[in-house]
């Protein structure tokens, strides 16, 4: 029988995933790996990991990786890419990492037009530390540090990173996708491929924001989390290509 699908070799075979049931980090990790293999980039790849659940994959992925100080992934990636332009350098960061503690590094790297690719995982909450409020937490959404839910009077509103970066001149590609349906998973893969191709073409800064779930800290099962994405996250974070130059 013809084999039409195989697990990506970029995830080590003997490793057991530490991600929670329903977590989408594994899905995005798989997509990145498949794209790297399809584009024959595995031996050029350097993944710059953020701190938080996003960093858990350091133990699983089979290509070069470096753990950045919390929020500094875009600065670390700048150093790697500038000193080794032949590498395919991408960051993999959550919302706390990319949009809160690393806001200066993220915006500045985008503003310099660094020739790197950013995979930004937005699930509206801090995962690893146990469900604290993120800059992307929805209004009314409960978090361990906003026990009555995010209140705009006290906490402001969710931050839209694609739109924030769209104010800058230098970035070439900004797209928001999700992994809540098979169709959206396919679109996410396509977006990752585009972000990597842009880097190969020397075009500059690309970011794919992936709206994902955190069933554990959202306090719901994996299937309900999918509904929550559709009903609550996506109206706040609409999917689509924000910029493609």
């Amino acid at each position: 029988m013809e084999q039409i699908y195989a697990r990506t070799k970029t995830i080590q075979e003997d490793k057991v995933s530490g991600f929670c049931p329903g977590c989408m980090h594994g899905t995005v990790m798989k997509l990145i790996g498949e794209v790297l293999e399809e584009m024959d980039l595995v031996d050029k790849a350097v993944c710059t990991l953020g701190i938080g659940c996003c960093g858990l994959q350091m133990d699983y992925i089979a290509y070069d990786n470096i753990t950045s100080p919390h929020g500094r992934a875009c600065a670390v990636a700048t150093g790697i890419k500038r000193s080794n332009p032949d590498s395919l350098v991408f960051t993999y960061q959550g919302d706390g990492d990319f949009a809160s503690i690393g806001l200066a590094e993220s915006v500045s790297a985008a503003n310099r037009g660094e020739n790197i690719s950013v995979i930004f995982i937005n699930n509206g909450i801090y995962g690893m530390t146990g469900g604290q409020m993120a800059p992307t937490t929805l209004v009314g959404m409960k978090a361990s540090t906003a026990p009555n839910g995010r209140d705009p009077k006290e906490h402001g509103y969710p931050m839209h990173m694609c739109e924030v970066l769209n104010e800058l001149t230098a970035p070439v590609y900004l797209e928001r996708t999700s992994c809540n349906t098979p169709g959206n998973v396919v679109k996410t893969k396509k977006a990752i491929r585009k972000a990597f191709q842009n880097q190969l073409d020397g075009k500059g800064f690309s970011m794919v924001e992936v709206v994902t779930s955190c069933p554990t800290n959202w306090g719901m099962d994996a299937l309900k989390a999918l509904d929550y994405i559709e009903e609550n996250m996506l109206p706040e974070f609409p999917l689509g290509v924000i910029r493609d130059r």
């Binding site: 600065a75 670390v76 790697i80 500038r82 000193s83 080794n84 200066a104 500045s108």
Partner: peptide, 21 residues
């Protein structure tokens, strides 16, 4: 590279040095 801060600059150096430079 003129970093956006000291924090970013040392992280850039961490990256470059991790890439062997």
């Amino acid at each position: 590279v003129q970093g956006e801060s000291e924090v970013a600059s040392i992280s850039m150096v961490y990256g470059a040095a991790s890439a062997g430079t």
